[in-house]
Design a protein around this nucleic acid. Structure first.
Lengths: 142, 142
DNA sequence: TTAAATAGTTGATTTAGGCAACTATTTTTA
DNA sequence: TAAAAATAGTTGCCTAAATCAACTATTTAA
């Protein structure tokens, strides 16, 4: 690979890291940190998920995760149910309140995306999305 | 904007955040944090830069930056030289050791990019870069 | 049946980063 | 030109995010 190509990739990475950082500021205004929202999303996507699964998919420390879940439980956003087959494992579910809280952040994020991208023409939006999908498809292959 | 489009963008953002996170692990193995490397890069790109300029371009707190620079000075990676025309301002330069340290991380990053992207064919690499540039060009407009 | 592995918790600590007050200058303004 | 405002950088204080290691309880493998 040519140095020039590497530079272009690194340049895009720096650029897009800024974009993502900007978007993440939404969470900073909310009551939940970025990681907390990601955890909520995991439980929302897959009700009954185990802490261990979240740990693996989000790659976060189990002690840290345990504390986040404890906070959620205290706020009555999740319920924990011990597995019958493996009493070490605990099924996690969002309560109605937990769902509500998650969806609020989720909606705010949608709005934010919409706001930012509405600055571009529909054709440009379409191009952006196509290029994003292309990149994702290639990178996902390996 | 349609919900489906918003979802695609968010999906890409999540996906690419992981890619960036993966790449950033290089820094985590090095002795320097991501922000510290960014600061080094700024001084490397523009020798004699002021702390204030770095603050503006990287958007980091001046107290935090001051501490980072102090660390670099202590490790003899940079030199500080008071400006003659404005004695509040301090010119920053990398020492030979500072350059060496920076280039080590920089080289490791290049190698890492090269390693990851060499899993793809040249055509795919070209497509990736083209799509990255396209996205960057559109987003930069506004 | 004992050893190793696994799920989760807890305590102690480190690090990143923000905020505000401060010093020392320089610039503006009245 | 003297006082006020702005600017560059430092320092102290603080909080939230995250890591690490030790621990309990349980399950699986040797």
């Amino acid at each position: 690979m040519k140095q020039e190509q590497i530079d272009e990739i690194r340049d895009f990475n720096r650029f897009y890291a800024k974009v993502i950082g900007l978007l993440d500021k939404t969470f900073l205004n909310s009551e939940y940190s970025l990681t907390e929202v990601r955890v909520l999303l995991e439980i929302y996507k897959q009700s009954g998920i185990l802490a261990n699964d979240i740990m693996n998919s989000l790659q976060i420390d189990k002690g840290y995760l345990s504390r986040i879940l404890k906070k959620f439980e205290k706020k009555q956003m999740i319920t924990k149910k011990q597995s019958d087959t493996d009493r070490r494992a605990i099924y996690l579910e969002l309560t109605e309140f937990g769902k509500k809280e998650f969806l609020e952040v989720d909606t705010a994020t949608n709005l934010q995306i919409d706001t930012i991208f509405s600055h571009f023409s529909e054709a440009e939006q379409q191009t952006l999305i196509e290029n994003m999908n292309k990149i994702k498809n290639i990178l996902q292959k390996k």
